[in-house]
């Protein structure tokens, strides 16, 4: 079997089990929605200016919290009934498991973001259609960074006694650059500034993505080794 075939086999398995149960997507989406609503209570009634300042932060709290929820679940599912051992018996590099899990998590987080974004636009009264290309770029780069370290840490957390509890404690401090860059650049774009103004943030996101995808890919085998 080629590399891509094995990669796809694992992603396909996760997609099939998700389409049958729909538990990951539905819980992530409903949670993201709840975060939007709860934060709306916490900050309103506010002025239009305040709303524009807080909106990007609220959006990213929703995405990252929902993301952490989904990431934790993705490896907890593998630990149940010891599926992870089956995965590890697959021939070839352990890095494939990481890459497949990472791409799967990227898909799930992306799907939640695609559905949540229009609701965010409605609830917070912001126009997102004109800025959709730049927003998509920010979402894409940030989600890659968050999901890469997130997938590795989810594998770690699932292997501990406390399971998913440890994941946010590991993930959020390390993901700080991604969260700051995502919130700041989303804010700039919502204010209608040009893409060139957020270029440093996009560069930072890109460097984070590249650095941590490589490190996580290499170190993953030490995390799942029994």
């Amino acid at each position: 079997m080629g590399y891509t075939v094995r990669l796809w086999a694992i992603i396909y398995k996760d997609l099939v089990s998700e389409f049958r149960t729909k538990e990951l997507f539905s819980s992530m989406f409903v949670f993201a929605l709840l975060v939007l609503i709860i934060f709306n209570f916490a900050f309103s009634p506010g002025t239009r200016e305040l709303q524009l300042v807080t909106a990007p932060g609220i959006l990213w709290v929703a995405f990252t919290f929902a993301g952490a929820l989904g990431l934790g679940r993705s490896f907890a599912l593998e630990r149940e009934k010891d599926c992870i051992h089956g995965l590890m018996l697959c021939p070839g590099d352990r890095g494939i498991i990481f890459l497949a899990k990472f791409l799967g998590n990227l898909l799930f987080m992306g799907a939640v973001e695609v559905i949540t974004l229009p609701l965010f636009a409605i609830f917070f009264n912001v126009r997102i259609l004109p800025i959709l290309p730049s927003l998509t770029l920010i979402l894409f780069l940030s989600t890659i960074g968050f999901a890469s370290v997130g997938t590795l840490f989810a594998a770690m957390a699932a292997a501990t006694k406390t399971r998913e509890v440890l994941l946010p404690i590991l993930l959020f401090p390390v993901a700080v650059p991604v969260i700051i860059a995502a919130v700041k650049s989303t804010g700039r774009v919502l204010e209608g500034r040009p893409l060139s103004e957020i270029a440093p943030w996009l560069n930072m996101l890109l460097s984070f993505d590249v650095i941590f995808l490589v490190i996580c890919y290499i170190t993953f085998e030490y995390v799942v080794e029994e």
Binding site: V149, M156, A159, T160, L170, V174, I215, T219, Y222, V223
Partner: peptide
Amino acid sequence: RMAAVLGII
């Protein structure tokens, strides 16, 4: 092993 990975990251 896991702590070492975190120590690097």
